[in-house]
Simulated scan of single mutants.
Amino acid sequence: MTSCQKIAPGATAYAGKQGFVTFEGIARETVGARGVCMHLLTVPPGGRAQAHKHATHETAIYVLSGRAVTYWGERLQHRIETGPGEMLYIPADMPHLAVNPGPEPVTAVVARTDPHEQESVVLLPELDALVP
């Protein structure tokens, strides 16, 4: 049996495959999680992820502040905007790319069914140029 553990935001930051510096929160590596990962993500103004998907894992995002635009679909042909208090669900294996077009940082809570925050990330460089 594992124990309850507290993680303080800002304790550990690392560069994720998607192109952002992210906070390593609840994950297999930090607390021994077996089925979930949750962390804070801040995207600076003008920040943009690399096109990617999470192989076999779902993602849920809750935007705390700022506005983000997420392009999604097999050719990133769909666009959805999210702002404070809104949630975004991304199905497993769905290509996507997030952009912060605004003048302020976007801060969000990100949860995924992959306990290893970076393990299921599959970069899709062939899709990067499809988003202006």
Results as ranks from 00 to 15, higher is better:
1 M>L: 13
1 M>H: 14
1 M>E: 14
2 T>F: 10
3 S>F: 12
3 S>R: 12
4 C>A: 15
4 C>N: 15
4 C>F: 14
5 Q>A: 13
7 I>H: 03
8 A>M: 14
9 P>D: 02
10 G>M: 03
10 G>A: 02
11 A>K: 10
14 Y>W: 09
14 Y>T: 06
19 G>C: 03
21 V>S: 13
21 V>F: 09
21 V>W: 07
22 T>V: 14
22 T>E: 13
23 F>V: 05
23 F>W: 10
24 E>W: 06
24 E>C: 10
25 G>V: 02
25 G>H: 00
26 I>Y: 00
27 A>M: 06
28 R>A: 13
29 E>T: 09
29 E>F: 06
30 T>N: 11
30 T>E: 11
32 G>D: 00
33 A>V: 10
33 A>C: 03
37 C>P: 06
38 M>L: 10
39 H>M: 08
40 L>V: 04
40 L>F: 10
41 L>N: 06
41 L>V: 13
42 T>P: 05
43 V>I: 15
46 G>Y: 02
49 A>R: 03
51 A>N: 07
53 K>H: 11
54 H>Q: 08
56 T>R: 14
59 T>N: 12
64 L>S: 05
65 S>Q: 10
66 G>L: 01
66 G>C: 02
66 G>H: 02
69 V>K: 00
71 Y>D: 06
71 Y>G: 00
72 W>T: 15
74 E>F: 05
75 R>V: 04
76 L>K: 02
76 L>A: 01
77 Q>W: 00
78 H>K: 11
78 H>R: 13
79 R>M: 11
80 I>K: 07
80 I>S: 11
81 E>W: 04
82 T>H: 09
84 P>K: 07
84 P>S: 12
86 E>R: 14
86 E>W: 09
86 E>D: 08
87 M>D: 09
88 L>G: 05
88 L>T: 15
90 I>A: 08
90 I>C: 05
91 P>E: 03
91 P>T: 03
91 P>V: 02
92 A>T: 04
94 M>Q: 15
94 M>H: 11
94 M>G: 06
95 P>H: 08
96 H>R: 13
96 H>D: 00
98 A>K: 10
98 A>R: 10
98 A>D: 10
98 A>N: 12
99 V>N: 01
100 N>T: 06
104 E>Y: 04
105 P>W: 02
106 V>S: 01
107 T>E: 04
107 T>Q: 11
108 A>Q: 11
109 V>M: 13
111 A>M: 13
117 E>T: 14
118 Q>I: 11
118 Q>R: 01
119 E>M: 11
120 S>P: 00
123 L>C: 04
124 L>G: 02
124 L>R: 01
126 E>D: 05
131 V>D: 03
